[in-house]
């Protein structure tokens, strides 16, 4: 190979490497800014949540056309009429279940896989169920590549995942007009469930449900819009 060709090739490789490193650094900087202004700035204080949100590259969970907006303060479309939730909403829903390292968490509505990744950074195991096959496949590939404590199932989330229950916490990211009885059954005594409730075609309420023995109580937290968009704080 003539010398000039080798030089050109080396230059190209160097350029690409520099570019990708710069891009990675850029995303890292954006992520740090996101955590500082959108997450900590709005009152999320749990160090496990803050660390997880600082570690997970949110842009990887988005279609390439949306990656440059990954750290903006808004939900983004991921196809099939679904969205990746606004970063704050992910942080809020994670913090509100008070995740612990030994937790086993069930997530209903894998979507992009980002929420499952955040949980996987904190808890022992995440079981996540997606009803839209192409979305579930995409998320499964991504999550399996980065985590060995995440199990993905393509199914109707209504029935939960009985063989792995009961769960310390259940995070539901798809709106429902009702709270599926199987999910309540699969919640541990003392467990928490976070779920957006109300008509799936209108604005919903984000609800925290706690199970204490036979008694189940709910707490309305904030109005949200989960399909297709999430609210800001």
């Amino acid at each position: 190979m003539p010398m000039y060709r080798q030089s050109f090739l080396l230059t190209l490789v160097f350029f690409l490497l520099t570019f990708s490193v710069a891009e990675a650094q850029n995303y890292q900087r954006q992520r740090a800014e996101m955590v500082e202004s959108q997450i900590r700035g709005r009152g999320i204080r749990d160090p496990l949540v803050l660390e997880a949100m600082n570690s997970v590259p949110r842009h990887l969970y988005l279609p390439s056309a949306q990656q440059r907006f990954a750290y903006e303060d808004r939900p983004l479309p991921i196809g099939f009429g679904q969205t990746i939730s606004q970063p704050y909403m992910v942080g809020f829903m994670t913090e509100v279940i008070r995740p612990q390292k030994e937790f086993r968490v069930l997530e209903i509505g894998t979507g992009s896989g980002y929420q499952a990744a955040i949980l996987a950074e904190i808890v022992d195991h995440v079981y996540t169920i997606e009803i839209v096959d192409p979305l579930g496949e995409r998320a499964k590939n991504l999550l399996n590549r980065h985590y060995d404590n995440v199990s993905v199932k393509l199914a109707d989330g209504y029935y939960g995942w009985e063989e792995h229950g009961p769960f310390d916490a259940i995070v539901v990211t798809a709106a429902a007009e009702y709270i599926p009885p199987p999910l309540i059954r699969q919640l541990k005594d003392g467990g928490k469930m976070i779920i957006p409730v109300g008509s799936p075609f209108r604005v919903q309420q984000l609800m925290l449900i706690e199970k204490k023995g036979e008694e189940i109580s709910s707490m309305a937290l904030m109005p949200v819009r989960f399909v297709p968009f999430t609210s800001s704080d």
Binding site: I131, D156, Y158, E177, Y178, V197, S199, S218
Partner: peptide, 29 residues
């Protein structure tokens, strides 16, 4: 099979939530 309807059902309901068809007008629920 995933379309169910039981608006604001009590936590005490332990049965199966029935599957129901949805009606849309001009694509809106």
């Amino acid at each position: 099979s995933a379309l169910r309807y039981a608006p604001a059902l009590s936590f005490t309901f332990a049965g199966e939530v029935p599957v129901k068809k949805n009606i849309f007008i001009n694509g809106d629920f």
